[in-house]
Amino acid sequence: MVELLSLPPEIPSAQNMKVGASKFCPGCGHGIILKSLAYVIDELGLQERAVFGCDIGCSLLSWNYMNVDTVQTHHGRTTPVIYGVTRANPGTVGIAYMGDGGGLAIGAQHLVNASVRGENMLILLCNNTNYGMTGGQMSPTTMPGQITETTPYGRDCETTGKPAKGAEMVASIVDPGKSFVARSTVSNVRKLRATLKKALTNVANGGFSFVEVLSICPLNWRTNNKDTFGRLAKMEEFFEVKDFVVPEGLN
């Protein structure tokens, strides 16, 4: 009889144990971001203050991922639902989770106005350069030349414009005194967690935070492990990974 050595998986308490394996595709970046977020919520002791909202699109599969009160909304509408909550119940640490489509296309007006008004919330945007759930269409952040279902011959920037740079746009319109704006990546989980910690600390202090995380979509990209991370590296060259705006006193 062989005795199996089993170790319980390490799960942060802000992550919902009961759902078991996540519903994301194998190799998806969402799990990395969400787990990092849950760890940071634990670390900062924000579980009771946090409210998590998710969009339609792949991010909707996170509707029961977190072990905090959560709400799944409509495409692009996570931002207004969450600032609706934080406006009505100040002290809430509101987190709106969305993809590049939800943040930069269908919900872009909410991103712009929440940034300008300095809504007390974190907008966390997972940028995997395509619409995943609907089958891999071009999104605002699709890379030049990238093949998607609606750019089968590669994204032509002459007719579709250049990829949208969310963090740069948000950085240019926020109040730098109370806003944290950064771009991070799933290729460096340690730094991702550090970035999310700054972002949530700023929200817990009453500020506005925006974090765009460069992520991966091997299913729609049709890439193996090596090519997936190769492409992510190219994205990191195109989309600068750094803290764009850091309010004084944070760090």
């Binding site: 639902v81 609706g84 909550v85």
Partner: peptide
């Protein structure tokens, strides 16, 4: 809010917040 879409959804947020 920035539009009626937002007015509707933020109202929902306020209601869910009690």
């Amino acid at each position: 809010t920035e539009d009626e879409i937002s007015a509707g959804f933020s109202t929902i947020g306020g209601i869910l917040a009690g």
